[in-house]
Lab assay of single mutants.
Amino acid sequence: MKVIFLKDVKGKGKKGEIKNVPDGYARNFLFKKGLAIEATPANLKELE
């Protein structure tokens, strides 16, 4: 799953980066803790 990092996550990504991460990791950790959001076309446009 492609995500946009909202905060730095040690060993995974830095704020503003767009990366592919495992689906479970994104849903169960990154999204729940507010560390990242899904890289949807709308979210990507908002980032620019």
Results as ranks from 00 to 15, higher is better:
E38D: 04
E48Y: 12
D8P: 05
G13D: 02
P41Y: 12
P22G: 08
K10N: 10
F29R: 03
K14T: 10
N43V: 12
I4Q: 04
V3S: 00
A42D: 15
K7A: 12
A39Y: 13
K32V: 15
N20T: 15
I18P: 01
L44G: 05
E17K: 03
E46L: 13
N28L: 10
G13N: 04
E48M: 14
Y25T: 05
I18K: 03
F31M: 08
L30I: 01
K33Y: 15
D23F: 15
L47P: 05
K14N: 10
E48S: 13
V9S: 02
F5Y: 08
A39M: 07
P22Y: 07
L47Y: 14
M1G: 03
F29G: 02
I37L: 10
K45A: 14
I4T: 02
A42T: 10
F29V: 11
G24Y: 14
G16H: 08
G11T: 06
E46N: 12
T40L: 07
G24L: 13
N43D: 07
K10I: 12
G34A: 07
K19L: 10
L35Y: 13
L30N: 00
K33D: 05
K19E: 02
K2E: 11
N28W: 11
V21A: 02
E38F: 04
I4G: 00
F31D: 01
I18T: 06
L44M: 11
A42M: 10
A26H: 04
K7Q: 13
G16D: 05
E48R: 05
K19D: 04
Y25K: 05
Y25E: 06
K2L: 15
E38G: 04
L30D: 00
E38P: 14
K7E: 11
G24H: 14
A36I: 06
D8I: 03
L44V: 11
N28D: 14
N28K: 10
K10P: 15
E17M: 06
K12F: 15
I37R: 08
V21Q: 05
V9W: 06
K7W: 09
A26E: 07
V3D: 00
G11F: 11
K10R: 13
F31K: 03
M1N: 03
P22A: 11
N43Q: 08
M1I: 15
Y25D: 05
V21T: 03
K32E: 10
I4D: 01
L35G: 01
G13R: 01
K15P: 04
K19R: 12
L47M: 10
L6T: 08
G34H: 07
E17H: 03
K14M: 13
I4A: 03
F29P: 01
E38R: 11
E38H: 07
M1V: 08
D8M: 05
A36V: 05
